[in-house]
């Protein structure tokens, strides 16, 4: 149970970063931390105490395997997270070129 709550703590750390930081790069890092907390939660869903990694080698000893489906999900989600982060960083760099700053308060020409 402690591990699950640590995931939640990590999620909150990321959210805190996104909400309070003003540097765009730090906002991106906050989002990445939130994503990773969810990935850890997904991996934990499939974990079974004392079970083996789900690989067929021909001479397995354990009777139980951990659930491989969340692992596949996490791999896919990592790829997607990579794409979003690359996109965000590219946009952040472009903004830096245009505005000369990473400060989100100074990038406010549009009014919500």
């Amino acid at each position: 149970m402690i591990v699950y709550s640590l995931c939640f703590v990590l999620f909150m750390v990321g959210l805190y970063g996104v909400v309070t930081r003003r540097n765009m790069i730090k906002i991106v890092i906050g989002l990445a931390i939130m994503e990773i907390s969810i990935f850890m939660f997904l991996v934990l869903i499939g974990y079974i105490q004392g079970a083996e990694a789900p690989i067929i080698t021909g001479h397995e000893t354990a009777v139980q395997f951990v659930d491989p489906l969340p692992q596949a999900m996490v791999l896919t989600a990592i790829v997607i997270g990579l794409a979003t982060n690359a996109m965000l960083l590219a946009i952040a760099i472009r903004i830096y070129k245009n505005y000369g700053t990473f400060d989100i308060r100074k990038v406010n020409e549009l009014k919500g």
Partner: peptide, 10 residues
């Protein structure tokens, strides 16, 4: 490479 080139241009 795209990110590196960005940095070059800026």
């Amino acid at each position: 490479i795209a990110l590196v080139i960005f940095k070059e241009e800026s």
